[in-house]
Design a binder for these strands. Structure first.
Lengths: 328, 328
DNA sequence: CTGAAAGCGCTTACAG
DNA sequence: CTGAAAGCGCTTACAG
């Protein structure tokens, strides 16, 4: 900038004014500055600007895995809103590791992000309190934070799960299985609750035999199916608590050439092309990302008066065939 | 940092030494500094550090769409390698818009990224020359840059496509269609070349009637299928030039209940669960991202002596059923 | 409308 | 092993 000023024969401050598009600059001087900028290939140094201004024009986005379709769609939605605010996005994958989450979150804070969107991996988030008090707003998505109060965007997991089970009940099923993630996972717990809600409303007693809660893996899913299908009164329908489990179940059913009424929680690509089409309770990751980003920028803009907000986003049942198979 | 120094009763420089993990600090002073850091909730300001050091510890990653599975897998691979180098990743989506690509790339440069990985959207990249000369290494992925020479990571599109067609030929097909993206797209051109290579080697004359080149959309794909299937000597097999087209073709075939031997370029999730399973020529986005990141960090580390490199990554044929349907 | 001076929070280069 | 001074490249606050 000093070089530009020298080359254009003006002061540093005038160059700064031109670079920042301030209006009160003489046209001739402006032209001279622009010429010098082009000639020297000048590009403003954002670090210096940030240091002086105190805000960085960046936000941090902490996901479980950038490569997972659910999070990558969420991520794109955040990017679009950030773009409207002239802000760039740092994205990082916690890989479900609490230490890595913490490390990334603090690295983002060291970079003085203007705000943070976090899909929690760990169960304790008090490490963020000093940062939040120092003025970095944080919005949690998908799961509530561990031991602090904060803004969050959640799916209506319980209601969605209930709707999925009610759908199976309405097609005559009475023995409905549930295979979900480990019970410590917030969403897994909520979805199991929705399953129980639906059974209870229908006057069907809850049975432990029909429920599996474990981290999703092809092996654990195959075991769970064994338990559901190989007993004296097998399940005729199944709610899968997450998309990884749904995919494992589909592979396992294809291998066994067994049919089973099936509703998956979370949509999977090409679900409509399977035979039968896959009925799902679909979350809306784009809407979640957009809601998180909007709330974050509202906080960044200074709206920090009220208490933490919780935004709940509905889950939609999409019937495509597998959930409409009638009970035998 | 000044506050920490005052609180610990040492100089700024000693705090700096502790924060940076330098070894030559007296244990008592170190302890006092660490205590002051904890008490004050101090976090080093990265902007100031970057300004002084001249490097930012960030890289920019410019994709077509962060939400596309191909790019999100590539993105995660870049993140992992960046992490090994203590570097954060800015990711942005060009949305296939040359202006937006330029705007994002220059915004990354203004933030003084240490390097840039770019999936080109536009056809001219000379706008990056000043930045490259100023010492920001740039690696292009998936497609070559427009009008400059630079490092790049490419898939063996031509060879992969050839292998896909040879696979169909080996199952007795002679009328093999090709539906690819618009001919301006580099990868589309290469894949058409591979298609021609395979036909030529088999002594089968190339026929324009069997080829469609257009931006993928459900409507254009349906039209292309009409042309291929409704004539006097219809195609018995098809190579789809990209995954969006593959999905449209699958939907269209399901609607018509027509069968056709099919090989898709690019894998799609759940392709193994379709009936028949989807045979594809699979790119390896993870390998591409990793190769790009490795080359970039090599350049950042100062290895800029040699000429630009091109790394070509193979495409693998994965037979799953659809490509093995025999010719009638 | 224009500019000179101070300072953002660090690290570098140097002295002791 | 420790510290005082200068400076990275901007913007802010102020004066003219």
């Amino acid at each position: 900038m000093k070089d530009v000023a020298a080359s254009a024969g003006v002061s540093l401050k005038t160059v700064s004014r031109v670079v920042n598009g301030e209006s009160n600059v003489n046209d001739d001087l402006r032209a001279a500055v622009l010429e010098a900028i082009a000639a020297l290939g000048f590009r403003r140094n954002a670090s210096a600007r940030e240091l002086r201004q105190g805000r960085s024009g960046t936000v941090g986005l902490l996901l479980e895995d950038v490569a997972d379709p659910f999070y990558s769609i969420l991520s794109r939605a955040v990017e679009e809103i950030a773009r409207d605010h002239g802000t760039m996005v740092f994205a990082g994958s916690s890989a479900e590791d609490a230490d890595r989450e913490r490390e990334l979150a603090l690295a983002f804070c060291e970079r003085r992000v203007d705000g943070l969107i976090v899909v929690p991996a760990g169960t304790s988030h008090s490490y963020l309190l000093p940062e939040m008090r120092a003025g970095i707003p944080v919005v949690f998505v998908d799961r509530p934070p561990g031991d602090i109060e904060a803004d969050m965007i959640l799916t209506d997991n319980r209601g969605g799960s209930r709707r999925g089970v009610e759908h199976l009940l309405s097609h005559g099923h009475r023995r409905i299985g549930f295979i979900g993630d480990a019970p410590e996972i917030y969403t897994a717990g909520e979805r199991l609750r929705g399953y129980r809600d639906a059974l209870e409303s229908a006057g069907i007693p809850f049975s432990d035999d029909l429920v599996t809660q474990a981290p999703p893996s092809p092996a654990s899913t195959a075991d769970a199916l064994d338990r559901l299908l190989d007993g004296p009164s097998p399940a005729t329908a199944l709610l899968c608590g997450n998309s990884r489990t749904t995919v494992s179940v589909l592979r396992e059913l294809a291998r066994r050439s067994t049919r089973l009424a099936l509703v998956g929680f979370d949509d999977v690509e090409l679900g409509d092309l399977l035979q039968p089409g896959l009925t799902v309770v679909a979350q809306d990751p784009g809407a979640m990302g957009a809601a998180a980003a909007r709330l974050l920028f509202q906080r960044i803009a200074g709206d920090t008066a009220g208490p933490p907000q919780t935004v709940t986003i509905g889950a939609r049942l999409i019937p495509r065939g597998s959930g409409e198979l009638p009970a035998p």
